[in-house]
Amino acid sequence: EFTQEEIQLLQYVMESYNKNRLPQDLASKLVDNLSTDDNFVFLTTMATSHVQILVEFTKKIPGFQTLDHEDQIALLKGSAVEAMFLRSAELFNKKLLDGHTDVLEGRIRNSGISHEYINPMFSFYKSLGELKMTEEEYALLTAVVILTPDRQYIKDKESVEKLQESFLHILEKLCKQHHPNNPQHFARLLGRLTELRTFSHHHTDMVMSWRVS
């Protein structure tokens, strides 16, 4: 059973999550034929867009703006890559972007980024897809990722932890409600967070090698 406060919290998060999606003109740009150079610009623009959307979403997470300003930046810096992977997983698994996700996948695969990075990334998206997460679960898991108290340079870990716990609690309840026959669902979602951390570490190497090439 959800409390009135939890229902309201969930509503807020969903409203913000739905409002802050990748712009549709990205989808129309996807069908354009791009040269290798344009492809590079396109993918970096898309990454920037991802971060801007993430910040807009985060600003509206109830309680986030009450945190210390520098802690807010540290949280966003620490989680941006992980949150981007989560959004991308949702994008690919739910075939968003007007159904042009196949074109996008091709574009990423032909971007010049080494396949040693690309393949595990798409396997991760696929494994997340197998969990059949609802939109609400994606949104809450993203909030949980952003509100991770043990990021670098966080001064007031306690306040972050408190906030994260309230979302973890709602996510756990939602998992039970959405997947009554799978009591392990919540634990599996949390397990994916560990994988996300690994990706975040590899992402720096990936971007570096891409730049060099």
Partner: peptide, 22 residues
């Protein structure tokens, strides 16, 4: 990596200040 992190931080700071708000 520090270069890309500065880029990331700049985007975050600008967005937090509402530069990309509707």
């Amino acid at each position: 990596s520090s270069g890309s992190n500065i880029g990331l931080e700049a985007i975050i700071r600008k967005a937090l200040m509402g530069k990309y708000d509707e």
